[in-house]
């Protein structure tokens, strides 16, 4: 099947840490991961800190090159070393990336100048850039701040500007690499809403790398990475019904799934699963009003 938009085949990556010590330390970050992503999919990648999930993102966005394995984006092998420079930059344009620290991805001293940075690099004509910048800023609801200085904005606002900067490049995929980890609940909610709107309304493929269970639960599909390997891959319902396995690798399930698991542990017989409060409530009402017992 060649229909997948992104195909990762047997990816491995090893970090060589030559930081402060003289002897390099090798950390295997990814160990034979294969993953296919369809066009327009909303995928969450879950994993604890250091599980290798961010490495996977950096490989897809060509920040890192895999030690072995292949990555195809829309049929093009991005690990191909004979790929020309222009082809590489075109692939970079198509794969947008939003990082964790909102401060360290804004380049310019004025919001709109920052959003223009990507399109300027692409050599797009001035009028077209102006239009793209205005569109992107209104899409993330930051049009009123276009003449502001980034350092005066809140974390969530900075992150929205960063997203606008990616949108203005008209990418096919946006990877959010723990983009909500440093935000407060309001900032997190705003960024998540934009992420989902981009996926639903503009058909952009979204990969949300996170360790927030509630965020992952909203995706179409969840891939759990542990120790550089794919541990689970399925719908949120499927993944979050494996509560003991998630606990084992340092993760959690949404509270509803946790409750059902806790009741089972306490000896109750519950045959189905639920990951939303509504589903869980209905399930418990049936159980407790005697229907199932």
């Amino acid at each position: 099947m060649n229909d997948y938009f992104i195909r990762c085949e047997n990816l491995s990556y090893i970090y060589e840490d030559t930081g402060e010590s003289a002897i390099p330390v090798f950390h295997p970050a990814l160990d034979g991961v294969s993953l296919n992503i369809s066009r327009g999919e909303y995928l969450a990648i879950l994993g604890h800190n250091g599980s290798g999930k961010s490495t996977l993102a950096k490989l897809i966005s060509m920040i890192l090159t895999p030690k072995s394995g292949k990555i195809y984006i829309d049929g093009t092998d991005i690990t191909d070393e004979t790929l020309g420079e222009d082809a590489q930059y075109e692939l970079r344009r198509r794969v947008g990336m939003v990082f964790q620290n909102p401060d360290n991805q804004l380049v310019a001293t004025v919001v709109e100048e920052d959003v223009a940075f990507g399109p300027e690099n692409l050599g797009i004509p001035s009028d077209e850039i102006r239009k793209r910048v205005d569109d992107a800023l209104s899409l993330v609801g930051m049009q009123d701040y276009k003449r502001h200085a980034p350092h005066k904005l809140s974390g969530g606002q900075k992150q929205r500007v960063a997203i606008a900067g990616i949108i203005a490049m008209h990418p096919d995929i946006i990877i959010f690499d723990e983009a909500t980890a440093m935000l407060d609940p309001i900032g997190r909610r705003d960024v998540l809403a934009i992420m989902e709107r981009l996926n639903r309304e503009d058909g952009i493929t979204v990969i949300n790398i996170t360790h927030y269970m509630d965020e992952a639960a909203r995706a179409d599909r969840i891939v759990v990475i542990n120790d550089g390997k794919t541990l689970l891959d399925g719908t949120p319902d499927e993944v979050f019904s494996n509560v003991p396995l998630l606990h084992e690798v340092g993760l959690e399930a949404p509270q509803s799934a946790e409750l059902i698991h806790a009741l089972r542990e306490a000896g109750l017989v519950i045959n189905s699963n639920a990951i939303t409060p509504e589903g869980c409530r209905d399930l418990l009402i049936r159980l407790l009003s005697g229907g199932d017992r």
């Binding site: 609940p185 949404p254 509270q255 509803s256 409750l259 409060p277 409530r281 418990l284 009402i285 009003s289």
Partner: peptide, 19 residues
Amino acid sequence: GLDTPEITKLAQGLIQAGI
């Protein structure tokens, strides 16, 4: 803008249903 925990909402739903 501070949400009640999901689990508390769930419990309230159960109470409303007579549990």
